[in-house]
Design a protein around this nucleic acid. Structure first.
Ligand code: SF4
Ligand code: SF4
Lengths: 131, 131
DNA sequence: CGAATACAGACTTTATTCATCTATAATAAC
DNA sequence: GTTATTATAGATGAATAAAGTCTGTATTCG
């Protein structure tokens, strides 16, 4: 049970954008080169980040990707959930709704983790890397 | 990204053992029937639980599985880690050891979840189901 | 217009999960 | 000691998901 590698790429891409893209949009070509992954593959993840409202895309020449929200607001949780989705770690086929105590325990546990990941911002990391 | 179905089976099996197996060992045959899964498949999970030290196995006629530790000590975390292992959710191929800030964040986040799962005991759930 | 860029869908390959089958080892009952 | 009953281990196959590629389309700048 692991995060997909796509999450790895997305986190690094965001880290790059936060760190190095103050004004000009960054193309997927450049990002893919930096991360050592193919353009078309990386573009799928960036598109997910766009749909999650984390970054903004600009078509056409000189286009690319740019942060959308204020940097300080983008958390690890935002990026991870954009890629991995928000489904629970535990989902049983017998859906004994509202009465599944196992599900309740796992969901609450996940909430603990999510709360922490929400408090950690990508920008904090970029600062640390620089300093 | 989800827990494997094996974890689902293992949790239900443990729940059964905690709830209904005070003295006599329970055979994999009975457990498999209760859970609606094949014996050989379920036995793999039970073997993992044995190796994790949660239950005890007895070969031969009238054998089966029995809880090992005191019931109250067996947590969700114990069962989940017995099946899923203890690897981190995030593991990057470039192993920039000790300096990977992303890894540090995720590991600490996991710790939050694990702490919660450790505090929740299987026995608590069995009680709730009964009452 | 033509080049550069993002986006979308079909497709392939690879890895993991899920599950079964078969064989072996241990032990209780007879 | 033989037999029935149980757990354990390993090989194998099927189903599903993840990882990655290819091709084509839409948008925008110059
Ligand atoms: S109680 Fe929850 S986990 Fe158990 S069978 Fe019902 S839905 Fe599934
Ligand atoms: S910093 Fe961490 S996540 Fe990033 S490449 Fe290094 S090991 Fe991988």
């Amino acid at each position: 049970m692991k995060y997909s590698q796509a999450t790895d790429y997305a986190l690094h891409a965001m880290l790059y954008l936060v760190d190095e893209a103050p004004d000009k949009p960054v193309s997927v070509q450049l990002l893919a080169e930096k991360l050592g992954v193919s353009q078309t593959y990386l573009s799928k993840m960036l598109t997910k980040l766009v749909k999650a409202g984390l970054i903004h895309s600009i078509s056409g020449a000189n286009g690319g990707y740019r942060l959308k929200r204020s940097q300080e607001d983008i958390s690890f949780l935002d990026v991870i959930q954009a890629i991995e989705g928000t489904a629970s770690l535990f989902e049983c086929s017998f859906n004994h709704r509202n009465e599944c105590l196992i599900q309740q325990v796992v969901v609450e546990a996940e909430l603990q983790m999510e709360q922490f990941l929400k408090s950690k911002k990508i920008a904090d990391l970029a600062k640390q890397v620089k300093g």
